[in-house]
């Protein structure tokens, strides 16, 4: 008979998981706590309870402007990355192009290069070729780093798809476009959706590229928060941060409903 896990080890693992949860979640809990504080200064545990910092954020042009830019760029990135990455994943999956493996590596390569190195390269390149950076610069560079995620999630879904469906559609007389649109794309949807959520999340939270490629009128929410933290943080930073955390929770909930989070995490 197999001996079970010793009791001391079970207790140890419960303690271990609790401590790890504390390390992982403490900064988020603290941020939420500070955001509802009444006090003028950043304090945790919070003194009193008020939503004054939220109303201050919602009437601050700096935050609202930055938030609006962040949303616009994130939506652009989601569109670009999902379209371009999804199409590329279909081509890579079919393995009919020469160098299919190289192609996959090329599309995943932005994952390997540290973002800061890419950020400098992009800043120098854009300034020397086109002049000052614009929202398009930022959207393009965010698309580059979001692309591997879309390619990966779509490839994972395609790997489990039925290869004979497309063949069947061909025999039944569907042309190329019809096969692509009515057979292949619907099979990709879960992967495309997951990739789209990732792309939105990456772009919305990204701070390194956004810091290097910022301009007087091009400040995203994370850059705005970073600037506040460097100089004079007050609880309104916590309120904005809490809104960002809430958005992340919504995204995770949607991903879990659509795809199953556990399967997704160990993919």
């Amino acid at each position: 008979m197999v001996k079970s896990v010793p009791a001391w080890l079970r207790i140890l693992s419960v303690v271990f998981v609790a401590l790890t949860a504390l390390i992982l979640l403490a900064p988020l809990i603290v941020v939420v706590g500070v955001s509802v504080s009444e006090s003028q200064f950043i304090a945790f545990p919070p003194n009193g309870l008020s939503l004054r910092w939220y109303s201050q954020v919602l009437s601050s042009n700096a935050y609202l402007g930055a938030g609006w830019i962040s949303i616009q760029i994130a939506l652009m990135v989601t569109g670009f990355a999902t379209l371009i990455g999804g199409a590329a994943a279909i081509a890579i999956h079919r393995r009919q192009l020469p160098f299919s493996d190289v192609l996959a590596t090329v599309f995943l390569s932005p994952l390997v290069l540290p973002t800061i190195i890419y950020a400098i390269g992009m800043l120098m390149f854009w300034s020397s070729a086109f002049g000052p950076v614009s929202p398009v610069t930022l959207a393009l560079s965010h698309t580059i780093i979001a692309l591997p995620y879309v390619v990966r999630t779509t490839l994972a879904v395609l790997a489990e798809s039925n290869p004979y469906l497309e063949e069947a559609a061909r025999t039944m007389g569907a042309n190329r476009l019809q096969r692509l649109w009515f057979v292949v794309v619907p099979q990709c949807i879960p992967g495309l959706a997951a990739g789209a959520f990732f792309a939105f999340n990456i772009s919305f939270d990204e701070a390194v590229l956004s810091l290097f490629l910022r301009g007087p009128t091009l400040t995203t929410l994370p850059v705005q928060i970073y600037g506040q933290l460097e100089f004079s943080p007050d609880p309104s930073v916590a309120a904005v941060s809490t809104i960002m955390i809430a958005l992340t929770i919504v995204l995770i909930f949607v991903i879990d409903r659509m795809l199953g989070l556990t399967k997704f995490a160990s993919a």
């Binding site: 790890t20 992982l24 994370p222 992340t248 989070l261 995490a265």
Partner: peptide
């Protein structure tokens, strides 16, 4: 397991700036 995955993914998908802010509050002098 789902809860543990959430516990790992939630911080992962939260902006680094936000998480660092949390540590600034926790680790500051007071």
């Amino acid at each position: 397991r789902l809860w543990l995955v959430v516990m790992v993914i939630l911080p992962l998908m939260t902006s680094v700036v936000v998480r660092t802010f949390g540590w600034m509050v926790l680790l500051s002098r007071s």
